[in-house]
Design a protein around this nucleic acid. Structure first.
Lengths: 343, 343
DNA sequence: CTGTTAGCGCATTCAT
DNA sequence: ATGAATGCGCTAACAG
């Protein structure tokens, strides 16, 4: 039963309970000492009035809000919702909430987004990857020096983090897959990716992959990257196009969506996998395991990356302490090559 | 270059520009009248100081924050990230942000979550489905009467919305699929679902499905719902279990993940689809189109549902006006049965 | 154990 | 066209 026009405040609760507003604050936050009688009266009054705490006011009064900013490159594949899920779980445990935005893998959008998110005075900010424009870095540096905003970059650990990076070694994952394909006897390899040159993590994997491939006597015979987002349909189409003109021993895809699409093309067209062509993806989505042939891929701990990042941003774990005292740090959560039936 | 200890405020900008704080507010918000000279000086001072607007203070001062609360049942399948994406795009256009939480398809968690999200004084709240506990409804009613919080329920339109519902007719989608299967000559049908009895939308589809099936001379010979989340792997396993003891003409799944998993089982085991068994899903995920056989499914406009809901919550479109003046309303965005190769 | 005072940063209102 | 005063709802710091 809230009042008609203005919302119920601690003052209203206080009046009803016959105590001061400050006492209500103490009871509701379980801070300081309060007597049992007073506590009961306040609780009763609060619930009778349907009192709802105003976190905006709390956030203004305290010097940081219980919000954490989260920048995601996209919501369009399974990877980032999983990261977000991990972040959200970790934040929830600490009584925090995420405000998030999507950059669409675009530096300019990321910059605008970071500025906007910073206006919520978040206690921390999470960014995808280690590459950011100078302006983005400057905006973040401002927040860090002005209010000690925590910064965590996720997914990638190949480079210099602003503060802390939580992720997996991308180039090494690429190298590992190259060595695997070579070991299986594949030499002439094609690469298929998406998101143009904007997906820096994929680019790093490809670099490592190409390097180890050359070192082992293999050859990257073709590399194609579509402009749009990745999807099963796109992977299927790109694979069809590729195989219509080229006969690689294997195809390395920038992720499992594309690879699964490629496998669909092969299944639908009676192309023997891995006899005629081997296929490998990246991420270890559950689809990789459920296909008629288990897809060879690199499993990444996406939920864990988000969860760990969330804990650091929440600021209440050992990792966070270490991170804040010893400067730039890297947390490698490790990836794992899963040899399936497609290579 | 913010000051060392406390963050830069409008007051700091004002001092530097030699004007009053109020003038800075007007310039930065482009409200009221300001002279060109003053505007330039303020803009310059603001950017030199790296000023960041404090939206917490704005939210406290104005009677509602530029936040919208979003409750999602899960982040674990493709559907809700897509809805979230739509919501986020609509809110971004209006300069708003989402604070979200995940209920895990659980009434008690939803209730706690709604209370928590309401403490951000959101101008609106989005909920999944039309079924909510009495306590949840009460908490929302309080916010509505105290501060005119907008409420939009998404996905389902079969029932009484609190205020506005945006989604598709679930029972009718089920009926439509039953008629389709009957038309293709399938009579003995099995149903496979997930999330126990907590996914009310799936339950409604099944109800409509069973009803139309009976009416058309078909028969639901078995119905199994697993407790956990849906996934390809789960669908594959459930299908294997089912077919090991029963030979239905067709299987209707509660969603495409399960159905695609079922198809994987059939492909992997040489079971002819739809010859030996037909398969149908729900949602129209892109996976449905990329499989070796195109999956028969019901396509739902998930992004659009989110986007439309976001616009209403932002409160700046015609739909929203109508919604607020004419009481409970339903916006049917329509689903579409897509006949693929699996039926 | 409880109350009083003050102010977080901003925008509304009223002056000028 | 600009400025001064005021208060949104809350909690830290100090009284008592």
């Amino acid at each position: 039963m809230a009042k008609d026009n203005s919302r119920t405040t601690m003052g209203d609760v206080a009046a009803r309970a016959g105590v001061s507003q400050m006492t209500v604050s103490r009871v509701l936050n379980k801070s300081g000492k309060t007597s049992q009688t007073v506590r009961d009266r306040v609780q009763k009054a609060a619930s009778e009035l349907g009192y709802v705490h105003n976190r905006l006011a709390t956030g203004l009064r305290m010097r940081f809000s219980p919000l954490v900013a989260v920048v995601l490159p996209t919501l369009g594949n399974r990877v980032f919702p999983e990261v977000l899920n991990g972040v959200n779980d970790a934040l929830s445990e600490a009584g925090l909430r995420a405000v998030f935005g999507v950059s669409e893998y675009d530096d300019a959008q990321e910059e605008a987004l970071v500025r906007d998110l910073l206006s919520w005075q978040p206690r921390g900010i999470l960014l995808p990857g280690l590459e950011h424009s100078a302006a983005t870095r400057a905006a973040i540096a401002g927040a860090v020096s002005a209010s000690g905003t925590r910064v965590v970059e996720v997914m990638d650990i190949d480079g210099d983090p602003i503060s802390v990076a939580v992720g997996v070694a991308q180039a090494e994952a690429g190298r590992e897959m190259a060595r695997h394909l070579l070991a299986r006897g594949h030499r002439r390899i094609a690469y298929l990716g998406a998101q143009g040159d904007r997906d820096r993590r994929a680019a790093k994997r490809l670099e490592g992959f190409a390097e180890a491939l050359r070192a082992g006597g293999g050859r990257l015979i073709v590399s194609r990257v579509s402009e749009g987002p990745s999807s099963l349909a796109e992977g299927r189409q790109m694979t069809a196009d590729l195989l219509s003109t080229t006969k690689p021993h294997a195809i390395y895809y920038s992720n499992d969506d594309l690879a699964a699409g490629g496998l669909m093309h092969c299944l639908a067209n009676g192309i023997d996998v891995p006899g005629q062509v081997a296929l490998a993806g990246f991420n270890g989505l559950d689809i990789a395991d459920a296909l008629p042939l288990r897809l060879t891929t690199t499993r990444t701990p996406r939920y864990q990356i988000g969860f760990q990042a969330g804990r650091i941003l929440a600021g209440d774990d050992a990792g966070a302490q270490m991170a804040s005292v010893s400067g730039p740090r890297v947390i490698d959560l490790g990836s794992e090559l899963v040899a399936g039936d497609t290579t």
